[in-house]
Design a protein around this nucleic acid. Structure first.
Length: 419
RNA sequence: GGAGAGGUGGCUGAGUGGUCGAAAGCGGCACCCUGCUAAGGUGUUAUACGGUUUCCGUAUCGAGGGUUCGAAUCCCUCUCUCUCCGCCA
């Protein structure tokens, strides 16, 4: 949620920034609604004040056993007027909230302008030498008899996968490695619910606009989580954090469920885009003055996994047109996939400024004042895609899939042989 | 799933129709006093929104509705917590 007062005082500037995302929002009607709401509020409060006074008078009169009919009549009149005004106030307020909750965050000043992925800007690249193969992870999976999409389709449907044998172990080991790394970086490990209520999804910004992206539990206002960002960040909903508790740093491994509505025909091969995947998420709640640095630290925490695994990656700053709804600034970490001869997203690290904090009322208590916190998060990392990256970067066509050095202490084999 | 009890400020806990945004205590903050100081005294201490912004107004006692001139208090619905029983990984 953006700040209404700020919007009112900087309408043109904010409208321009938000519309640089590519969609055209009319923010001036929001400001008009806001002003209308305020003027109604003034009227209503005045009438309520009068009514209160009269009620007090009636109380006094009754105590003295005096007649209070005159006052009761006036109070009735005020009530009639009030209920009319209150009704229109509620309408305006509701309309205003509905509109406001659909407005995305304001992109950061320095966010590169652009319309799509094409306009994202590479800001960093790190390369490692690895064995060369022309096979993609699906073919590699077959060669080591460890990956099966048909079984998954039978059990549930498309966009799921079954992993077996040592590859399934490696998948699990990756989670362990990522959590260990997060804890080394002082994140507190949490085990969190994988189902959340609609308030939580509203808080992080998936609702109301992106309801169709999530799996909803039938006959219940609850959803499977699309990312651990939702339960982790909502741990702090309606909380007031003391300055000396900051920065709050939490992590969790969870499965993530996404309907992938609107991505028909996209990444249909392999396990790049699935309805269910595992992820280790990093979340920070920080003071506004340090959110920019916090994002950088989080990016380096996430990237360190790829440094350890020695797989080439780059950082890409998302342009205004590619930015997610709640984010003000986002750096994607993209990993090298030889089969596609391209870098693919494996983590998305964002600064949400006070946008999520305003939606879920996360505050920081200073000695003097209370201010909204800033929230930061990113994957550290997406496990499925990381496994894909390992498969394609560590496959020796004569030997099998080699276990990256950093992962060896988590499994009891050096490589997965060809079957 | 069945039965019962209960949700009041940072916390404990009074309050069953008016002068209650709410006693008292604890905790916090400010000042004062004081050589036995982990003591004493005084004051202050909720949140949000709005305004003509050192002040004023309105709302908020789990949430929503109702009764009433007037609701923390009465009525209805929902929700959450606790206890007991049942079932169960």
């Amino acid at each position: 949620m953006i700040d209404l007062k700020l919007l009112k005082n900087n309408l043109k500037d904010i409208e321009k920034k938000i519309n640089s995302r590519g969609e055209s929002f009319d923010l001036s009607t929001i400001v008009l609604d806001y002003e209308k709401k305020n003027s109604l509020q003034i009227e209503i409060e005045d009438l309520r004040n009068q009514k209160k006074q009269i009620s007090k008078e009636i109380g006094e009169l009754k105590k003295n056993k005096s007649n209070s009919l005159e006052q009761e009549k006036r109070s009735d009149e005020l009530s009639t007027n009030l209920s009319k005004l209150e009704k229109s106030f509620e309408e305006v307020d509701k309309k205003l909230n509905e509109k406001l909750s659909l407005i995305p965050n304001i992109p950061h000043e320095k966010c590169p302008n652009g319309n799509s992925e094409e306009d994202n800007v590479e800001v960093y690249r790190k390369e490692f030498e690895n064995p060369k193969t022309s096979l993609d992870h699906v073919e590699i999976g077959e060669k080591i008899d460890s990956i099966n999409f048909d079984d998954a389709t039978k059990v549930v449907g498309p966009r799921f996968v079954v992993l077996k044998n040592e590859l399934a172990q490696m998948h699990r080991a990756l989670i362990q490695l990522m959590l260990d790394e997060a804890m080394k970086n002082n994140y507190q490990e949490c085990y969190v619910p994988h189902i959340v209520n609609s308030n939580s999804l509203f808080g992080t910004g998936q609702l109301p606009k992106f309801a169709e992206d999530s799996f909803k539990i039938e006959n219940d206002e609850k959803y499977l989580i699309p990312t651990a960002e939702v339960p982790l960040t909502n741990l702090f909903r309606d909380k007031q954090l003391a300055v000396d508790e900051l920065p709050v740093m939490v992590t969790a491994h969870t499965p993530c469920y996404r309907s992938e509505a609107g991505s028909y025909g996209k990444d249909t091969r392999g396990m790049i885009r699935q309805h269910q995947f595992e992820k280790v998420e990093l979340v920070q709640v920080v003071h506004p003055s340090s959110s920019s640095n916090a994002l950088n630290s989080l990016i380096s925490h996430a990237s360190s996994i790829l440094d350890m695994l020695e797989i080439s990656y780059r950082h890409v700053e998302l342009c205004t047109g590619d930015l997610g709804f709640s984010a003000s600034k986002t750096i994607d970490i993209e990993v090298w996939l030889p089969s596609q001869e391209t870098f693919r997203e494996i983590s998305s690290c964002s600064n949400f400024t006070d946008f999520q904090a305003r939606r879920m009322n996360i505050k920081i208590k200073d000695e003097k004042e209370k201010i909204l916190a800033h929230t930061i998060n990113g994957s550290g990392l997406a496990v499925g895609r990381c496994l894909v990256a390992i498969m394609e970067n560590y496959f020796d066509e004569n030997k099998g899939l080699i276990v990256p050095e950093a992962l060896k202490k988590y499994v009891n084999f050096e490589f997965i042989p060809l079957k």
